[in-house]
Design a binder for these strands. Structure first.
Lengths: 124, 124
DNA sequence: AGCAATTGACTACATGTGTAATCGGAGGTT
DNA sequence: AACCTCCGATTACACATGTAGTCAATTGCT
């Protein structure tokens, strides 16, 4: 399973942006958002390899990293994890929280409506 | 902020079930779900106090613990955190994931519909 | 009064995590 | 051939975390 730390996740996420990618690629991508030392990122890549979250092909000098776990899967697992821990597994109360805090956009609402329509078509 | 670890969260969550509560109360509550040593739970209570997530009133011998942070707030922060990290801050894609994995219930859908209706009334 | 049990405080210790620095070797440069 | 450079591997180290154990004081029991 994923026992990926916060920092490790950022690196993995950068890799999901495009792969295979060299360490330098990842470092460049993270340079924008994070203020991490190159060595730090390499350490994190290493730990991700050890955790079997990513792997690499040996190119000439540098490695070509690629993810072993799919972003969609990871995201689904994390979401369901949080929803089950914090909302007894039901997603509506989470959305309710967002509605309350004004964090619900017109776009969200439109998408939700369409999701619901689809769900109802499929489920009855 | 909350830098509450997983184990600490379980204890805090047990406290939210009802407070003020003694350490023994919490231990009893967690006994059902977790297989933690009494001492472990007391350590976690202590750490939560140090982190100013909870506090206590000194009763006679044992303390009466109570939360300093509200579950609703905590839950909102964690949710928004996850949604922003994994879904660029928009909640609909998260719900879409649930719809896809058959984890959306009739009840969820009804609640979502009512949330949406309310949102639209408020927002246009 | 004296002892046992209970409670929070303090201590312990292995492993995880954030954040690098150093090492040794492969490749390019002169 | 000798050296510099760039890469991954290995090592470092402080603080967080999971998971308890020991200590000292208080309380209840006899």
């Amino acid at each position: 399973m994923s026992d990926i730390s916060k920092a490790e996740f950022e690196v993995l996420n950068a890799l999901w942006e495009g792969y295979p990618a060299t360490a330098s690629d990842i470092i460049a991508r993270l340079n924008n958002s994070k203020d991490w030392h190159e060595k730090t990122i390499k350490t994190l890549l290493n730990r991700l390899v050890k955790k079997q979250a990513i792997d690499f092909d040996k190119a000439q000098r540098s490695y070509l990293y690629f993810p072993l776990i799919d972003k969609v899967d990871y995201v689904a697992k994390e979401s369901s994890n949080l929803v089950s821990r914090l909302f007894s597994g039901r997603v509506a109360p989470l959305v309710a929280g967002f509605a309350h805090s004004e964090s619900l956009s017109r776009q969200d609402v439109d998408e939700l409506k369409s999701l619901i329509a689809q769900w109802e078509k499929d489920n009855e």
